[in-house]
Nucleic acid binder design. Structure first.
Lengths: 334, 334
DNA sequence: CTGAAAGCGCTTACAG
DNA sequence: CTGAAAGCGCTTACAG
C-alpha cells in the first residue's frame, strides 16, 4: 500500500507552502493566478485526493448530516436517501440515518444525533411534527424540512425544501382534463398531513379553472398506503357514473388503484386512466407504467445539503417539478 | 456550542492516561477490571462520544466502505443499503455508493473508489462480473460479493455473503406442495445470473423430493423485471391445465404475476397462489400481500461490513433465510 | 497492566 | 498575496 499523497507533497511539488495549497483546494480567493495554476497542475500530476478525516478534525466541522425519517424502507425515503448519498460523496459529507416511527424520539437519541452532525434533514411526515422540530431547533444547528412548504417555526435554523405541491397537482389534473376527462376521481392522502390538503387543492383548482364542478362523490379518502387505496378505489368504481380517470395522491396508492381497476376488468388507460404522485420506483413496477408527478429527489437532497453546508442561504426552496408521462393515462373514453 | 468531551477529559475524570481509556474504548485486553470500571463510569458521567474523524486520521483506516451496484434504486439495493447505513452508523463506517450500470466502469472511477475505502461490497448482478472482480482485486483491499455463493476468484481478499439460494427456493416450493399444489408454475430470472439457476434448481429439487414430475411447460422465462413476468405469466395462464400456484424468482416479478392473474379474473390465493423471492418493500405493496423468501438484508450487510473491518474471518458466509408468510398463498383449489 | 511521545493530514488564527 | 506555528482527538509503536 503506497503512501498517501498529502497536501504537503503537493506543496513541495508546486514549490509553495501547504497553506497556499489549502487555499486553492478550498477555492479561497487571494491567490495569484500563476500560483493557482502551478498548484492545480501539481494536484493533477500527483493525483492528490483530500483526506476527509483530517479535514474534519482540523476544521471542527463534523461533516455529518443527520436524516430523520419515519419509515426508512418506503420508496420515497429510499429515493431521497439515494439522492443524498450521491451528493454527499461528492462534497464529502456522510449520512447518519435515524428512524423515528415509534413513539416520541428519545431525548437521548435525538441528542446523540444532533450533537454529532452539522445539520439535520427531516423527511415527511416528520417534517410537519412541530414538537419534534422544536426539540431539534433547541440544538442550534440548521435543519431542513423536506416536502414541507410552510415554515412551522420561526427561527434562523429552520428551512424548507419542496416542490409546489398544489401547482403540481393542478398541472397533472389539467393534463387529464385536456385529454377529455371530465369525471376525475381523486384519492387523498393522510388527512393529518399538509401535502394532502395541497394536492387536493390543486386538483380542485384545476377543475375550477376548466369550469368543471367539484363532485364530492369523486373524492375518496386514503392515507397514502396501498391498502387504503384499495377500498377507496372500490368506492369510486361503485359509482353509477364512474370516473374515466383516477388521480391517486401518491404512487403506492396508484398501484393499488391499478390492481382494483384490473380486477374489475377495466383496461388502463383505455377504460380508465390512472395517475400518481412522486415518481418513486414503484411507478415503473406496475403495468402499464405510471404517469405521475416527478419529485426532483436528487435536487431536493442537494438543496437540503447545500443549506446545511451554508452554500444555500434560502430558507425556503421551491424546486420545479414536472409530469413524467408514461402509459397509464390517455384520452377519455366516450 | 459547548466544548466536545474528549478522551482526555475522560482520562482526567478517571485519573488514568488517555492510552488506558483508548484501550477500554476499543475493547482491548490487558486492563485491570477496576480500572476498566472507573473509565466506563467516567464515559457515562461525561457522556463521551468518540470523534470518528480523529480515530480515522490516527489509525490510518479510511473508515469508508464502497458499495458497487447496478441499479441503485431497485428495491433490493435500497433494502441492502439501508442495512448498511444502519450498521455503519453503529460502527463508525461511512458509505460511498457507486453505480455501474453503463458500460465498463472507468478505471479512473474504480481507482478513485478503491483508493478511498477500506473495502468494497459488490451487489448483484455485479458480484458475478468476473472481470470487474479481477480489477477490484488488483487493489489489494477486501471485497465482498453479495448474493453470490460461489467464489469467482481465488484470492485472500475475496469473500461472499449470501443465503442458500437453492435451499430457500426448495423450502418455498415444498411449502406450496404441502398445501396440496401439484402444478406449480415457475418464472425464472435473468439467465446469465447464477442465482437464477440456483432458484430453479431448488424448485426442481422440491418437486423431485415430493415425487412430482418436472413439467417444462410450467417453467416460464423471465429476467427479474416486472415487464418480463407479464408475458411469462400470460404464457402460464394460457396452459390448458393451469398451475394452481406460481413461484416468481423475485418479488417484482411476483407483483407482475398478480397483476396478470387479477386481469384474468382469478382470485389470489383462492384460485391461484403467488409467491416471490427477496422480501423487498414491494412485497407489502401488492394485494394480497406477498408470501416470499426473506433475504436477511440487515444481517447480510452486517456480515459484509464485518468482513471488511476484519471482524468476520469467514471467506464464505451463508446466512439463514426464512419464508415470510403473508396472504398470497393458500390451499390448492380442487 | 499502564503511560509518555510522536504523528495522522488538514485548517485556523495570526503575521507579514 | 503567502507562510510558520499550533492544534483538532485520537492511535500506534515503544517503554516499563
Amino acid at each position: 500500500m503506497r503512501k498517501n499523497i498529502t497536501i504537503q507533497d503537493v506543496a513541495e511539488h508546486a514549490g509553495v507552502s501547504m497553506m497556499t495549497v489549502s487555499r486553492v483546494l478550498n477555492k479561497g480567493g487571494n491567490v495569484k493566478d500563476s500560483t493557482r495554476q502551478k498548484i492545480e497542475q501539481a494536484v493533477q500530476d500527483l493525483g492528490y485526493r483530500p483526506n476527509f478525516a483530517a479535514k474534519n478534525l482540523s476544521s471542527g466541522r463534523k461533516n455529518f448530516i443527520g436524516v430523520l425519517c419515519f419509515e426508512p424502507n418506503s420508496p420515497y425515503v429510499s429515493q431521497f436517501l439515494f439522492g443524498c448519498l450521491r451528493y454527499c460523496s461528492e462534497v464529502g459529507y456522510h449520512l447518519i440515518v435515524e428512524e423515528n416511527n415509534a413513539d416520541r424520539l428519545l431525548d437521548s437519541k435525538l441528542q446523540a444525533l444532533c450533537s454529532g452532525v452539522d445539520g439535520v434533514i427531516v423527511l415527511p411526515p416528520l417534517s410537519e411534527d412541530k414538537s419534534l422540530l422544536e426539540r431539534i431547533s433547541a440544538f442550534n444547528i440548521p435543519y431542513v424540512c423536506v416536502g414541507q412548504q410552510h415554515m412551522a417555526l420561526q427561527d434562523k435554523f429552520h428551512s424548507t425544501v419542496s416542490i409546489d405541491e398544489q401547482q403540481a397537482a393542478a398541472d397533472l389534473t389539467s393534463s387529464l382534463i385536456e385529454q377529455g376527462h371530465t369525471r376525475i376521481g381523486f384519492i387523498s392522502g393522510d388527512k393529518s398531513q399538509g401535502v394532502t390538503q395541497l394536492r387536493l387543492a390543486g386538483y380542485q383548482q384545476a377543475l375550477q379553472q376548466h369550469k368543471l364542478s367539484i363532485q364530492p362523490e369523486l373524492i375518496a379518502e386514503g392515507d397514502f398506503s396501498y391498502k387504503s387505496a384499495l377500498s377507496a378505489t372500490e368506492q369510486l368504481l361503485s359509482l353509477k357514473d364512474k370516473p374515466s380517470a383516477i388521480f391517486a395522491s401518491n404512487d403506492e396508492m396508484a398501484a393499488a388503484v391499478m390492481a382494483v381497476v384490473h380486477k374489475h376488468q377495466f383496461a388502463i388507460p383505455k377504460d380508465i386512466s390512472v395517475v400518481g404522485f412522486d415518481d418513486t420506483s414503484i411507478a415503473t413496477m406496475v403495468w402499464p407504467q405510471l404517469t405521475t408527478v416527478r419529485q426532483p429527489f436528487v435536487e431536493m437532497a442537494k438543496a437540503a445539503i447545500d443549506r446545511i453546508s451554508g452554500q444555500n442561504p434560502d430558507a425556503k426552496t421551491l424546486l420545479p417539478s414536472s409530469i413524467t408521462c408514461r402509459e397509464s393515462h390517455g384520452q377519455a373514453a366516450n
